[in-house]
Design a binder for these strands. Sequence first.
DNA 1: TATATTTGCATCGTGAACGATATAAATTAA
DNA 2: TTAATTTATATCGTTCACGATGCAAATATA
Lengths: 147, 147
Amino acid sequence: MIEEAFKLDNQLCFRLYTASRLLTQAYHPLLSEYGLTYPQYLVLLVLWEKDAQPVNDIARRLFLETNTVTPLLQRMEKEGVLNRRKGENDARQMIVSLSRKGKLLRKKLSGVPFSVGNAVLCDSVTPESTPELFRMLDGIILNLSSR
Amino acid sequence: MIEEAFKLDNQLCFRLYTASRLLTQAYHPLLSEYGLTYPQYLVLLVLWEKDAQPVNDIARRLFLETNTVTPLLQRMEKEGVLNRRKGENDARQMIVSLSRKGKLLRKKLSGVPFSVGNAVLCDSVTPESTPELFRMLDGIILNLSSR
DNA sequence: TATATTTGCATCGTGAACGATATAAATTAA
DNA sequence: TTAATTTATATCGTTCACGATGCAAATATA
């Protein structure tokens, strides 16, 4: 059934692509108020969990390449959200740590997860069903990232 | 539990974002062989379903804005995959239709849905569970696109 | 009919993504 | 120790996404 396989409505990737974009858009008004983009917010989530990490660790945590993360971090440094300094043990590394401003953003953005979480909830996506959704998405991610 | 809400592992959007990116990457080797990107492939899916559509209809079908789609179509036109002509009834419209090359690509890419579909399958994502996954993603999309 | 508004598409600027490549520091091998 | 290789990060070029804006054609309003 090649016909069916080509239909947009049967495509998993298109759904993921669209859902991801729309949900990122939902973050936009909440983040732009503080001059942040969604990928920059992800970097903050990583650093809020554990401050002072090399570029590589941040990139791996986000499943991104350093050639994506480096310019991102440079922009964030320019905005004063974080600092970058050469590693002491390994001079190749660039250690990224939160600035005072970056730490303060955590409190200012404390409402964001709740706001966005609420925006997503609907008949098909409930607090009860999200674990199953997470499980499936994690399966896809694990499957595709290990090759 | 602000602490928990901020954890990357509790974020739906990050999962969607990552799964979408990784799955798009899985398409890459299959599409680049024919000089196509994933968004360009999506445009072809739309046109294979119904040829000769105005820019607006294509954009809406993909949940994209025309300022994203227009340059995409211009690149595809330059590659000879499709043609663009002024609308006859409404001169503002730009009618996009498949070229011979664009139509032929359908056969050449006939293995793509199957290849990618196989790459996704895992313990958590089976032919039996995908309808449920589709249902939840459709819920999110419907929910976020209608506002 | 003249004017205002809406609609469809295009252009511009910025920030991701990502393949390809470069560079310097660290590690391994010779 | 010197040379080859690997590793960590950065730079470059192209293609999205998307907010903001521009413009001409169509439609609505006065």
